[in-house]
Amino acid sequence: MTSTMDRRSLLSRAALGATGLVAATAMGSLAPETAFAATQQFADAGQPDPNFAEGLIMGRNQDLLQVQGSDGRLHRIQLTGVTSVWKLRPTTIDQARIGDGLYARGVLLPDGILAAEAIWVNIVNLTVAITAIGRNGVQLDHHGQKVVGHVQSGTTAAVYNGTPAVSDLSMLKVGRHAQVIGAWRPGTNEIDIATIYTSN
């Protein structure tokens, strides 16, 4: 934990310009554009992308996940300290649990393991209509299926008409269409809402 704090403190100072810049000469040799040109090739249109995985976490051996894809593929996904993990909010790799669904992007290694750079756990992106708003959550109609959206204080944000996201949900209205980014609660038709885009 201390190391996390130290690292944060160091990064804070670096971002604010309080640290010296090293290897100034290296900068000329590597403008971001050149680094960018060297990015990986993607799969052909319509084909599965080998550097991407989707599915349910069936097993976990330390930081190696076994994932069963909905297209029948089996994936082994390696998480590391630099893997970004989203589960309702950016979080740590220990939060990826058996039974969770995930999307992962990374680099497929020669041994068939996907070294994950980013994973999104249980993430859903739904186009819905708001059918009721209660203290226990927001009832959503997702193409005829009922989905209950839970509000998590401190995390759930609303974007009204494209204006900056706010924590104020009091302008949500019954009958309006909305797009919801949220985290599915495995085994249920319930989600925790990260962001709800709607009109007021």
């Binding site: 993607f42 799969a43 052909d44 249109a45 319509g46 084909q47 599965p48 992308d49 991407f52 995985a53 989707e54 599915g55 349910l56 894809g69 909905s70 297209d71 593929r73 669904g101 999307y103 249980n122 859903v124 992106n125 739904l126 186009t127 997702h142 193409h143 299926q145 989905v147 599915w184 495995p186 038709n189 989600i191």
Partner: peptide, 27 residues
């Protein structure tokens, strides 16, 4: 969007109007 009978609310999405859609494919 998700497709291909995956987990969660995507479970009922099926393979889309073309019958070929999968979340893990470039589509």
């Amino acid at each position: 969007f998700c497709c291909g009978n995956a987990w969660g609310p995507c479970g009922s999405a099926g393979h889309g109007a073309c019958g070929t859609c999968n979340s893990g494919s470039m589509q």
